[in-house]
Design a protein around this nucleic acid. Structure first.
Lengths: 175, 175
DNA sequence: CCGGAATCGTTGGGGGCGCCAACGGTAGCC
DNA sequence: GGCTACCGTTGGCGCCCCCAACGATTCCGG
């Protein structure tokens, strides 16, 4: 072929896409230092790892999150769950449907407010939750395997501050 | 309503979902400390901010990333772009199509290898890229507004190490 | 007590991203 | 010349995030 013509696109030619991002894709400098880009990549990897782990129990990330939230908050309405986890009510319906179908949570009408459904974790739900927590934690350990415990804590702290904007009551910006 | 009956699901009753995650959704403890969860949230916010900013130029994140990569790497094949950025070839086709349609890149057959397309940034592409880089940087500044420059650098360092797995061959432990 | 406003659960969309399988065309290797 | 590998392209799947609307219910002010 000949690199001599100065037009053969540089770059070797051995690898293609193969797999999620098995070999480290070192993006161009301008992109790879953008937090938004890195966050997207890291989130994708984290989601993949957790999804694989949770698949053993037939649950997805949102299922585990909702199940965990329900277990912590006791009987709680779907709207409140959505607010707490930042999940759209529409998606919440599907998740709770699945969890209820699998007998992991109970959905009973709230006698005090007939608009609400009181979602509560069942015994089977608690049992499954214990396993999924283990699986989720394990996946997160693998995700942060390259970090020391202290670094992981710092990452969590930094991310937490990124996730929640000002939220001091001033509202978003000044609008 | 009456909290007296001990069944009214706790929680006030003032807020609902409204918006992406306008008010800080403080997830339950078990979930909110999971890096995978935080990464998903942070990535969503970052994507939203960058997407909004880039919308002014009619581009999406991938467009900007590809355009930037092309500008850095000179004439490059789509497969190589996919490898570099970790993007599926299928998605790459669409992105390059859009960029070409808008006259931001040129896609000429590589005379040295007729399988490949030599993707190169155009003058208009460079001009747009300069703007989108500004917009992207601005959005990332807003994303990391709560962080000091040093913290932002550390976040980048930590995320970089998360994104690229150890890939040393040790494999995922054993349990 | 009555009517407007707000909330709850639900349904129906839609856009973006990550990933895989397959196919025709081309190039490299023996 | 034939096998293998790669390139670009098409088609498809699943998940996540987000918005709009509707009936039922509850809350609040008059």
């Amino acid at each position: 072929m000949g690199v001599a013509n100065g037009f053969s696109l540089g770059i070797p030619k051995d690898r293609r896409y193969r797999g999620p991002m098995s070999d480290a894709p070192y993006a161009p400098r301008r992109i790879r230092v953008l937090p938004s880009w890195l966050l997207g990549r890291a989130a994708a990897r984290g989601h993949r790892l957790v999804a694989e782990a949770l698949a053993a129990e037939g649950l997805r990330m949102m299922h585990h999150a909702v199940l965990s939230a329900v277990a912590e908050s006791g009987p709680v309405s779907q709207a409140e769950l959505g607010r707490t986890l930042g999940i759209d009510p529409k998606d919440m319906v599907g998740v709770v449907n699945d969890l209820q179908r699998d007998g992991l949570v109970t959905r009973t009408p709230d006698p005090g407010d007939r608009r609400k459904n009181a979602v509560e974790v069942s015994t089977a739900g608690r049992r499954v939750l214990r396993r999924t927590q283990r699986l989720g934690d394990r996946a997160n350990d693998e995700l942060t395997a390259a970090l020391t415990p202290a670094e992981r804590e710092q990452l969590i702290a930094l991310l937490t501050r990124i996730v929640r904007p000002a939220d001091d009551g001033a509202g978003p910006a000044r609008g």
